[in-house]
Simulated assay, not measured.
Amino acid sequence: MAHEVRGVVSIAKGEPVRLETVLVPDPGPGEALVRVQACGVCHTDLHYREGGISDDFPFLLGHEASGVVESVGDGVSAVAPGDFVILNWRAVCGNCRACRRGRPWYCFNTFNASRPMTLADGTPLSPALGIGAFAELTLVHAGQCTKVDPSVRPEVAGLLGCGVMAGLGAAINTGAVGRGDSVAVIGCGGVGGAAVAGARLAGASRIIAVDVDERKLATARELGATDTVNSRDADPIEAIRALTGGHGADVVIDAVGRPETYRTAFYARDLAGTVVLVGVPTPELQLELPLLDLFARGGALKSSWYGDCLPSRDFPLLVDLHLQGRLPLERFVSETIGLGDVEAAFAAMSRGDVLRSVVVF
C-alpha cells in the first residue's frame, strides 16, 4: 500500500522547488517508514536543486531530519514502531573492508531503501542523500534510523542528521581536538559554528572564528569562540598566528571548501598541525600548493566525511550532552517554517540570514 503525502520536489535544475503529491510505499525487508517531525534546510538540498550533486531529477529534498518510526519491514530489530529517531545518510554495512578493519565511519557500502518513492504519475524520485525528508512520511533503510532520547525537541535533534554533526565531528573526530589545543575555524555558518561548539566541548583553550559576516562571528562567540577575525578587515593567516604566539593553530578547520580558504587553513596551522576540510568543494575547483611546503610543514591534511561520525555511537551521546545543557544545539535553529516555505529558506540561507531554517510538521 502506498501512502499519499505532500513533499518538496526539485523538478529541474535551477527551478524553484514545489510541493507535489508523493507516494511512499510500505517498508520492505530491512526498511523503515518514518513520520517526519522536523527537517533542517541544508546547503546540500540547494546543491541538489542547482544540479551540483547529480542530474537525477526529480529530487525529493530534505535529509536533516528526525521523526517517529511508523512501521518496519521484515528483518528489522534495531528500531520499532513508536521509536523517536534521527535519520542519517550513512547506514553502515558492517562487511566492507573499512567496517572489517574497525572503521565503520568510512563504510564504502552504505545502505538506502530499495523501494522507490514516486510522484503521483509513477515517476521515481531521487531522495536527497537517500532520505527525502521534506515530506510527512519517508522510506529509508532501517540502518538510517538512530534511536535517541525522545525528550529532545525534534527541530534540534534533526540537525545532528547532517550539518551540525559534520561540524562537531570535524573538530572532535577528524581533527581530534584535545584539551588545551588551539583551533581556528574558517567559515562560521551552520557547519563552522558546529565546529566551534565541538572544539569547545573537546576542551580547546583558544578557538578562533574566521568569517566575513559579523553576524556569524557574533554567533560563533555564543557557541564558544574565544576570538574572532573578520577576514575582510585583516589577513586571517597573520591574525591567527598573532593569536597563537606566532606559531599558528594546532587544528584549522576549513568549513567553506574553496582554494583560498584551504590555503589559509594550510598556512595558518602550526608546524605539524592538522588541517581539516569539511566544507564541500564544487567539482570545478582546483588547488595549487608548493610541494616543498607540503613536505616542510609536516602534520596532517584530512578530509572529514560527515564528521567521520558513527551515528549509533555519536547521535545518542550528543543528544544526551544537549539535554545536560553542555551542547547548545538550540542556537543553530534560526527559525521554524512550514513545508511550503523551503524556497524562501533557500534565499535566506544564501543571504547569510540564518544558521538553519527548520521545517516543522
Rank of each mutant, 00 (worst) to 15 (best):
T336Y: 01
A176W: 08
E20D: 14
E330M: 03
A113L: 06
L277Q: 15
R313F: 06
P25S: 11
N88Q: 02
A272I: 03
P27I: 10
H247S: 09
A348I: 04
L339R: 03
A348Y: 05
A78S: 14
R153D: 14
V359M: 06
R179W: 14
A113N: 01
Y267R: 07
V275Y: 11
M165I: 12
T228A: 12
L23N: 10
D320E: 15
E20G: 02
F108R: 14
G62Q: 04
K216G: 00
G189N: 10
A184E: 05
V360Y: 00
V333F: 08
I172K: 09
P290N: 12
G132A: 09
P27H: 11
G14A: 14
T123W: 06
V92E: 13
D314G: 03
D45F: 04
G338Q: 01
W305N: 08
A239Y: 00
I131Q: 07
V210W: 04
V22A: 14
E222Q: 15
R115Y: 00
A265N: 04
S151N: 12
A234W: 00
V251W: 03
L318Y: 15
S304W: 10
R241S: 01
Q324M: 11
V24P: 08
P124K: 03
V183K: 09
Y106W: 07
T21F: 06
V354H: 12
S357F: 03
A2I: 13
A12E: 15
A128I: 08
G7S: 08
D341Y: 00
E155C: 11
